[in-house]
Nucleic acid binder design. Sequence first.
DNA 1: CTAGGGTTAG
Length: 584
Amino acid sequence: MLRSGASPNAFTFPFALKSCASLSLPAAGAQLHAHALKAGCEVEPFVLTSLISMYAHCSLIDDAGKVFDHCPQSRRLTVCYNALVSGYTSNSRFSDAVSLFRRMTEMGVSANSVTMLGLIPVCSLPVHLGVGTCLHCCCVKLGLDRDSSVGNCLLTMYVKCGSVEDARVLFDSISCKGLITWNAMISGYAQHGHASHVLDLYREMKSCGIRPDSVTLVGVLSSCALLGAYHIGCQVERQIELSGFNSNPFLDNALVNMYARCGKLAKAWAVFDAMPEKTVVSWTAIIGGYGMHGQGKLAVNLFEQMLQAGIRPDGAAFVSVLSACSHAGLTDEGLKYFNAMEKKFLLQPGPEHYSCMVDLLGRAGQLQKALDLIHTMRVHPDGAVWGALLGACKIHKNVELAELAFERVIELEPTNIGYYVLLSNTYNEANNMDGILRVRMMMRERKLKKEPGCSYVEHTGKVHLFLAGDRCHPQTKEIYRMLNELEDWLKENHNLDKSYLERRDDERLSGTGVHSEKLAIAFALLNTKQHGREIVVIKNLRVCEDCHLFIKLVSKAVDRQFVVRDATRFHHFEGGVCSCRDYW
DNA sequence: CTAGGGTTAG
């Protein structure tokens, strides 16, 4: 049109500018800007709005600001402010967005829902929670919180600022919850790892007659992956088939991840293989799955295949391959990838990569090298880095270095009880009673109490959670009876060693209570009888040796298969054979 | 000018 000599007017500019915005064509956009100036219509509210939006979408946010500043105040309508506010937000300019909103209010320009929808998402980090809460108050004052979009937006803001609790309070206060409201809360819980809350909400949502869509199911699947809730995951897959969603990369990645983490590698592979377009996220999920289940060599092969397919690995992909190497004892490969990461792929390793490397070297017994690596780190080591060294010191019974690692880790995470327990266990193996007492004293002084471990079992579409010594479950009586029967039976038929029985009595007397994984196993046996071949138990701590023995003997006795997943790895118990391939 | 999504050890 321009070439033909015709000049655009106030009605045609917005359309043309919108195309520049969506295609990110800043040069063409700037040319249109020049034409608008010539035509003298750049201060027409809709032209102005489109210009701001165009520059903002082209990441030229300062140019957007200039256009706005050159416009006389009388022409700055709400829509113009809205365009610039959302421009600042999408370019992550927190203080600019907030101060423009303040200016707008001071100038007496009224904010509407769209203003808030453009502004609220600028609060996306925990430090923004205070401002986000203020914005929530503004919405209430302006009567905009009744707008369902604004409510959903606020809900997501609380999630991004790290307060799922505030999000939940808001969620409960929303009387007309739409699909998006449910999805925002479900994925909020999923992103923060509150997996059992996700499954509870999912059930509730369905009972309210809301039909889940693919966004819902992505959140549910990632929670199934965290919990190892394979059967619920399968139900979700059936739901996908029933609903007839077309194959969607988000959903496929979530499925691959779910199957992989539940140990169903063949199924994970089938979904992965059938994916029309595999992204680095898909590869990371499948590599992590093989690595987690002791198939380190396969994981490394897949990483190579990914490189050959021309996919650039990112930080997460390196975490999955490095941890696979660590679990499988592939020390040299791990070192090779770690070096390639910086030199060949120009990725700055973060603390999470160093903690994998310290774990890798530490497990291989190269404690000094692990320590040297920490000293050469260019980023600040976090608790996980020193914690990995501490874990390695326990394996290799190096008390002296354990003390050093403990000192460092406790500066960073003074209330993480796991590390006190790790040091105490290191002392225990070295028969260092003084050390154990010192740790206990420290914990008492700091008023730290070991939090109860917990285990989950999924049964009939629900996740049943047990704490150590738990008596809250409706079937408590039967569960304990079953457990006693099992242990008596094991005692008579398997010469259970004396120390196990002593520790068991100790457990009951001292009130620390029966280990949660034993309760979960007893519950599962009680409810599934001979049906169902596999039970998945997940624990947030490590499986201790006694429980290992218990589960191994039970699985042999009843000829059942168990997979126990703890904080660090999966343990497979099949008819009495305990295969912990990644304990090397 | 406008609310919801997948991958990361210990």
